[in-house]
Amino acid sequence: MLRHLLREMFLLIPLLFFVSIVAFFLVRCLPVDGATAYLNSIQVPITQESLSTIRKELGLDEPVFIQYLRWLGQILHGNWGYSYQTKRPVLEELGRGFSYTALLTMATLLWIFVCSSVLGITSALHSNSIWDHCVRFLTSFLSSIPKFWLGFLLIIFFSLKLKLLPVQGVGTWQHLILPSFTLSCSYTAIYTKLLRTQILECSQQPFIFYTHTRGFSKRHIMFHHILPNTLPSLLSSFTIHCGSLFSGSVLVETVFGWPGLGRMCVDAVNARNYPMIQGYILFLCTLFVGINLLSECLCITFSPQYRQEKLQ
């Protein structure tokens, strides 16, 4: 297993490396030269002389390759520069944003888990009934609705009309309900559909027929024989959606004024806050690689077929 994970990492590291080069050149290739920007920020008059001394001091006169290595060293030491807007370290800001986004994601995962397991199992148990058709319509509806629009509709209905929940911002657990529900909708649709087809497919298998003949209760068969067999495909589809879960949260965070990573990045792009943009790109890609490796571990642990297929 360790060897397999190392091989996976071997494929993902080049991606990370490539992204770091892009992120480096992102700031290097700006219309404003680094030395001029630095002189402006410490309010020293720009002359030919001061420019050349600053270039030497910042190492801008060295070859690009050396500069890249030095920059990479700084990144690895946790020195990600300072945000233009708040003048605070980028890594600290990103960490704060990430804690909020992670909270939102956890709540979303809870919604997805509860809603899709209830809808998926009930619709598979009563397949081709009216309930099943309702669920099928609901899932195609939920997967097509624009998240940001749904968010506003929920705000208008639950917060402005009924005055049940807070409109925007963070604070209590009630602030978490609407954003996480909005974010969970499209994923609930996907997993409900997947769970339903997987359960129906698995029920056709001979070993399920055998458990019926042995006289087990329907509930026992569902929870001990069918559901564990649907787990691998659900997990592997989950790995695909992890990345989009983080980028999808941008829309929801903007709608609900949630101070997470996504809104931070939108603000940074609009304010041309380059260190933050650079940091966000690096952070998200590292997260992406981490999640991919983690899900690979989970798939190997939970799915014997996958393990056999991959480890040989």
């Binding site: 892009v22 992102l26 990345g243 980028s247 941008v250 990045c265 041309r272 992406f288």
Partner: peptide
């Protein structure tokens, strides 16, 4: 599974 907002942001910055 790559978050495409990263690519959008890179293009927007350039």
């Amino acid at each position: 599974s790559f978050p495409n907002i990263v690519l959008v942001m890179i293009f927007m910055t350039f």
